[in-house]
Amino acid sequence: MEEPEQPRDYFVLPEEAIKFLPEEWQQHFHALIDEGQAVLEIADDNLRNLNRLVHAFPSMASLRYIQHRLASTKFEATMDWVLENDMLTLAFVTTYVRLIDGGIGSGVSRSALPPELRPVHDNIIELRNKRYAHNAGHESIIGSLEIGFESGNFDIGVNFNMGFHVGGANDWKSLLEFLDSLMFNRLHAQLEKLKEKTGREWIFPSGSPPQWVSTDPEHNPSVGDTP
């Protein structure tokens, strides 16, 4: 029976400390440094792409968590519940747009989405632009002012209707599962390119997914799986 492999110990040696080592050790470490730098120079463009992609991971993880919180909510006919649901929806749509637009991270174009998910994407963008980022007359917010006159006084009345998805729209989960899979595939495409260019294996850290990430065995390992 084979014994389980013992975890390896790693030690960090500052480059400034190398000069205090025996001569043969110094030569060995300098050779390793030169070799590593040469490999990194060859893969510089791919590493830049990988760095941009990694910047999108926090937004993807936030989206999965917010959607989980929304889907787990239990409806209550109270103003506190309405405002809580609205707050989570605000967090969802703004984080979604941050992921899609990319910025320093890796954006996702509308054309990268399957046709059946593009209307979901469009609705989120409109919700963010017209309801949350700006008061631009989104159809889910309707307000009117009524003024009555009686006994020489003006009475002001306000009618206000706010529509919302209880726990978020049903299609949001499918959209996030696709984006999660897309990010995972992009990550491993970059790792494969790095392997082809350098002839070395490139291993990305991974771990068990949080409870709020889908545990469907048919679903690809997600960006949320990585620490």
Rank of each mutant, 00 (worst) to 15 (best):
M1H: 05
E3G: 05
E5L: 02
Q6Y: 06
R8H: 03
D9T: 15
D9L: 05
V12P: 10
E16Q: 06
E16L: 08
P22W: 10
Q27R: 15
Q27I: 09
H28Y: 01
F29N: 04
H30R: 11
D34F: 10
D34K: 13
D34G: 09
E35A: 09
G36F: 06
A38G: 14
L40N: 00
L40P: 11
E41P: 00
N49W: 11
L50V: 08
N51S: 14
A56W: 08
S59W: 12
M60C: 09
A61E: 09
S62Q: 02
Y65H: 12
A71S: 12
E76C: 08
E76Q: 15
E76T: 01
A77G: 01
A77D: 08
T78P: 09
D80I: 15
D80M: 14
D80T: 15
E84H: 03
L90G: 02
V97F: 13
R98T: 08
L99K: 12
G102Y: 07
G105E: 03
S109M: 09
S109Q: 15
S109V: 04
S111R: 14
P114F: 07
P114D: 10
E116Y: 14
E116S: 03
N123G: 07
I124M: 00
I125N: 05
I125K: 09
L127I: 10
R128Q: 01
R128H: 09
A133Q: 07
H134W: 00
H134Y: 11
H134A: 11
H138Y: 07
I141R: 01
L145N: 05
E146G: 14
I147N: 09
G148L: 06
G148R: 04
G148Q: 10
G148D: 11
E150T: 15
S151H: 05
S151L: 02
G152N: 04
F154V: 05
I156K: 09
G157T: 14
G157D: 00
G157Y: 14
G157Q: 14
N159I: 15
F160E: 12
F164P: 02
K173W: 04
K173A: 06
K173V: 03
S174Y: 03
L175W: 12
L176D: 12
L179I: 06
D180V: 13
S181A: 15
S181E: 14
S181I: 06
L182D: 05
M183H: 14
M183T: 01
L187H: 07
H188C: 11
A189D: 13
Q190N: 08
Q190A: 01
L194C: 08
L194D: 07
K195N: 08
E201Q: 13
W212G: 01
T215H: 15
D216Q: 08
G224H: 02
D225Q: 03
T226R: 15
P227Y: 08
